[in-house]
Design a protein around this nucleic acid. Structure first.
Lengths: 222, 222
DNA sequence: CAAATATAGTAGTATTACTATCAATCTAAG
DNA sequence: CTTAGATTGATAGTAATACTACTATATTTG
């Protein structure tokens, strides 16, 4: 099983044509992710990507409606992949406290490329998601996109972790809020640590970020 | 002093020409804010705004370099105004715990238009900032913009509240991280409450949001 | 092997994000 | 009260963006 590839399923509302179904589609994912990490969402265009993969805009449009949908695809891919990672990290662990601790460790760890997913480099993906993911839901189209399942993976994961939170403290009133706060915070605090240090306390150091979020959770829950 | 206007100072790096210095500048602020709240940053263009205020694009460009700078202006205005609000809410309160509690109340409250600031409707401003503020700093230009003082007001406020956190618990290692997490969370959780309810627990209800954040802080600090 | 169909490439349009120029107006100083 | 200076408005223009429609080619199937 060592060489098994990991099939990450993404909603079919998140693409026009499944990019994982063709060579050029995979190239769009792979190079698109790299380009996105290089220049950011605002500067990212399908034209630039087409140039990079020696193809054309119209070809890319056959796979994704627009760059926002492309980002949302990556967003879902990331959380689906993270879900697998988390599931793996907590198998055979019975104690819910230990499970939550391990989840926080996984969430705050810098990931490296997962060779089981061929055309996606998770290290780059995490960087991109950290910077751009808020933009997927902070839009006037949230409700519409939410209906179309744009945030399903993320919601699933929040639910899943919230169940563990409830196990730890069944009387706690805001498990989902706590979990989504931690998820958002894990990105933003690290980002602040690098770019806006005055807003945080050396959160680019993984151990500190992990400690901060773990303490936040357990002090709140116990 | 009842009719006194409140002068909110915004960095001169956040505009080309001070919009508060002329009638048309004020109109850009007032109507720009309204338009932004109506259609969101992605759809917002200076052309549309020019049409709305019966002026031209070139006139608006004389005040702001681009819509990102316009948003950053509003972002700083909001936090500068919030700073005044918070300062007022904690004057004469000596107990740091009580001060923090009151700050969280102010942060989670839905504001209404402050008549002391003529051309800015704070109710609309808060809505806009909740949706768009993350976009001010989640960009490839953060470092550059940070140097130019784009986030000064926000950083000042985080610092100010962090000092109170330190008063409450001088040994706590992550005061700034806790404060910025609460600030970010106050926006996102309310937003989730309205648009992505599965990610939270009825956080669109002010009392719940206030309770959630207050508990988070005090359990962590005490 | 021919017809059907999937896919890529070409060419176009409307809009965006600006910049430049010039005339009209209003304002402030001598 | 006149004139210089600054502000605004109108017009025009450019390069890039965000698409769409059509055409050419490759592949699959009957």
């Amino acid at each position: 099983m060592q060489n098994a590839t990991l099939q990450i399923q993404v909603q079919d509302t998140l693409f026009v044509k499944d990019p994982s179904s063709s060579t050029i589609g995979k190239s769009i994912l792979e190079q698109g992710l790299i380009l996105l990490s290089e220049i950011g969402l605002e500067e990212f265009t399908f034209k630039k990507l087409a140039l990079k993969i020696s193809s054309t805009e119209s070809t890319i449009y056959r796979y994704f409606e627009n760059k926002h949908q492309f980002l949302s695809y990556l967003f879902n891919f990331y959380w689906a992949w993270m879900d697998v990672n988390i599931a793996f990290a907590i198998t055979n662990i019975d104690c819910p406290k230990e499970r939550l601790k391990r989840i926080i460790r996984v969430l705050t760890q810098k990931v490296s490329n997962d060779i089981r997913t061929p055309f996606i480099d998770e290290e780059i993906l995490q960087e991109v998601i950290a910077l751009e993911s808020s933009k997927t839901f902070l839009s006037k189209k949230v409700d519409e996109e939410n209906k179309a399942g744009y945030f399903l993976q993320y919601k699933k994961l929040v639910d899943r972790i919230s169940l563990i939170v409830v196990e730890i403290n069944p009387t706690y009133a805001y498990p989902n809020a706590l979990v989504s706060t931690i998820l958002e915070s894990s990105f933003h605090q690290r980002y602040f640590g690098i770019h806006l240090p005055r807003l945080t306390n050396e959160m680019h150091v993984q151990e500190r970020l992990e400690d901060f979020l773990t303490e936040l959770c357990f002090k709140t829950l116990l």
